[in-house]
């Protein structure tokens, strides 16, 4: 048995501002994200990416402006962090069951957990402790936990940031596959511009709390890095990120 498509839900922000005390972190954010889109969000450290993500899935409230996301009312928004945040004392299966929420147990719950574990390629590992898994597998468990309740909106805050380069490539393919299978709306923050272009239908660049670039990525999937089109898009984003400072670009 495998997981059924869940579909996505839209998110719209109109003139959204977020401030912590006198520190204005985001302002004038206008975004229309259609259902099922994969949105990559990039920007320098501290520019407000995580804050934007937390707003969009209802972990924080806007200071002013309007945020409209049906998934929030249906409690169908989930988040995956950079750290898997698994319960070390719970098996893979029990960790995934956390995603089903209160009072959800029994056969139906078991089946849902088994299906989503198969979807993320962890069939047969249900009984292991997190300490017995590799970093990539732990993050897959976190992904399964987020997806088991069939959310229509999934936020990912640098989900692959702690993984080594080879595992990241694997996980990017996995993430793309799962998203294509299930159809949720994906909002992914990443500091890797290549990753943003490889996965996003659209790349949003945040700088000093504002959207300074909103770029559609119209390349067929799965995308090949190193093609001229891919490189051109990467270049466009890097230019905007670092201006024309060649040394900063070189370092990236």
């Amino acid at each position: 048995m495998s997981s059924q498509p869940t579909g996505g839900s839209r998110v719209s922000l109109k003139d959204v501002k977020k401030a912590f005390g006198s520190n204005v972190v985001l302002q004038g954010i206008d975004l229309e994200i259609p259902a099922g889109q994969f949105v990559s969000i990039v920007g320098k450290s501290g520019c407000g990416k995580s804050t934007l993500l937390r707003l969009m899935i209802g972990l924080d409230t806007v200071t002013s402006g309007v945020l409209d996301a049906p998934a929030l009312k249906e409690q169908a928004a989930r988040i995956v962090f950079q750290e898997p945040r698994l319960l070390p004392w719970a098996s893979v299966k029990d960790n995934v069951a956390v995603g089903l929420g209160e009072g959800q147990s029994g056969q139906a719950a078991d089946q849902q957990a088994a299906a989503i574990l198969e979807e993320v390629g962890l069939k047969g590992r249900e009984g292991l402790w997190p300490s017995q898994l590799s970093g990539g597998m732990r993050q897959r468990v976190a992904l399964a936990r987020a997806l088991v309740s069939q959310p229509t909106l999934l936020a990912l805050d640098e989900p692959l940031g702690a993984l080594d380069a080879l595992t990241r490539i694997d996980m990017q393919a996995l993430l793309e596959g799962v998203w294509q299978d299930l159809g949720f709306t994906a909002l992914m923050v990443t500091h890797d511009v290549g990753e943003a272009v490889a996965l996003g239908d659209r790349v949003i660049l945040i700088d000093h709390g504002q959207v300074v670039l909103d770029l559609a990525v119209d390349l067929p999937r799965p995308r090949k890095r190193g093609t001229p089109e891919f490189a051109a898009l990467e270049g466009q984003i890097l230019d905007k990120l670092f201006g024309d400072d060649p040394r900063a670009r070189e370092a990236h």
Binding site: F81, R85, L87, W89, A90, G99, G101
Partner: peptide
């Protein structure tokens, strides 16, 4: 505290949070 935040995000009530996160973590 990241695990506690995770528990809250997944809608655990205080009792579940205590039994599934805090007590095993303190054990």
């Amino acid at each position: 505290p990241q695990l506690i935040e995770m528990g809250r995000i997944y809608g655990m009530n205080n009792r579940t949070l205590f039994l599934k996160v805090i007590l095993p973590g303190a054990l």
